[in-house]
Design a protein around this nucleic acid. Structure first.
Lengths: 222, 222
DNA sequence: GTACGTTACGAACAGCGTTCGTGACAAACA
DNA sequence: TGTTTGTCACGAACGCTGTTCGTAACGTAC
């Protein structure tokens, strides 16, 4: 009565792909896309791979490690171009837009990137590229180095804001909140409510990047 | 055999302060300061208040609501000054520094403010003040409105980064990572490793704010 | 044919957020 | 003064979480 069980156990998963870090991360990213970050639990990922939760710990350093691996995978999808000094500003905008796009395509990942900045291969290649573009723009090295941090902050912030905006539809709600405030105590908010909520995520992101770039150039000149 | 039990139950908490939202938030903030955000569990807060976990739900809308209430409380500690147009830039720096300080004093709260931007009384008063300072600086209303978002992002980002830096001591570790990279593939990172990790949190924050302000002024002029 | 190292499994543990039935209290009423 | 009523607090219990670890099967080398 043991042989049949052994056979069945073999037949139940006939050509099951062997577990690996890649497989685990793939399954986790699939769940992330369909059901959001909170749905990415060890049990859920294990079930998707037709295994038990404990099996994942061989390939991934706990849930925290899994999230970091997912983060790295997302960052790795950002294409990098060789630096062209004559078009550095356009290149930078394009690079940041691609970063933004990668985060937006994987809602929830930006939030984790905020609290745990990645120092993986892919992240470092991205940093190298960004630093190169800034230096090609003639920006002072110290300021360029610090600017990479600021720009990364803008990207993740914009992505997180987009996540919230997409799920909560804050747009109209927020405008009502602003206009509904007592005008005597909040004269500026009520007056400029339209401007406060104006623009979509992309416009606001573009504005933020341009302000920082203008600031970098203005400060360098001084 | 019931009467003694009743007496004892009364005597055990003789002058126990009645529960309230304030009391719950106070207890939660105390735990946050000593043991960090992860330690702020409903059970832990309830134990601190000498009650059961279910009792908190009368005063606070679940754990999420508790975190928001804590966030609001922290923001409310930021003092606001009347706008002085002749010193708007200094005022703005000072306001942002106070925001930063409030977040740093309560590690973990900045991370929650990132994903759930607060729209409470205190947050709106802060927004009103910030907007007033920017407008007093002669910045175009639409740009000023968007800038509030960017500046808020810088504050929370800097606070989160400081949290990480304090717990992980990333300073030296990161520098080693950068200098240890293969110079042929990461020439810029290895060359500018010192600049990438230069400065403490305050210096980096000040730089970020100055860049944004310079950018706002430069763009307005154009 | 046998022994071995590697890998997978899933039961079990401690802890979590949340719900809800039970019971004690204080105030209002008869 | 006795009774009712409404408010509030309690903590057991549910279903879930991340993680550990003993057990068992596997493919491979001897």
């Amino acid at each position: 009565m043991n042989a049949p069980q052994r056979q069945r156990s073999t037949r139940d998963r006939p050509a099951k792909a062997p577990l690996s870090e890649n497989a685990v991360v793939d399954a986790a990213l699939a769940i992330l896309k369909t059901d959001g970050l909170d749905a990415v639990t060890m049990r859920r990922v294990a079930t998707a791979l037709d295994t038990g939760p404990g099996s994942l710990y061989v390939y991934v350093n706990g849930r925290e490690g899994l999230l970091q691996a997912m983060q790295d995978r997302v960052i790795a999808t950002v294409d990098l171009d060789p630096v062209d000094p004559t078009q550095w500003r356009t290149q930078l905008h394009s690079l940041l837009a691609r970063m933004h796009g990668a985060f937006v395509a994987h809602p929830g990942i930006a939030a984790t990137a905020m609290t745990t900045p990645p120092r993986t291969e892919a992240a470092l290649r991205l940093l190298e590229n960004m630093l190169g573009i800034l230096l090609a723009g003639g920006i002072d090295p110290q300021r360029a180095a610090w600017a990479t941090d600021v720009l990364a902050a803008l990207v993740t912030h914009a992505a997180v804001e987009d996540d919230v905006r997409r799920t909560d539809d804050v747009g109209g709600e927020l405008h009502k909140t602003f206009t509904g405030l007592p005008a005597d105590r909040f004269p500026l908010i009520t007056t400029h409510a339209a401007q406060l909520v104006a623009g979509d995520g992309e416009q606001r992101f573009r504005f933020a990047v341009d302000v920082v770039l203008d600031g970098l150039l203005a400060g360098s000149a001084a």
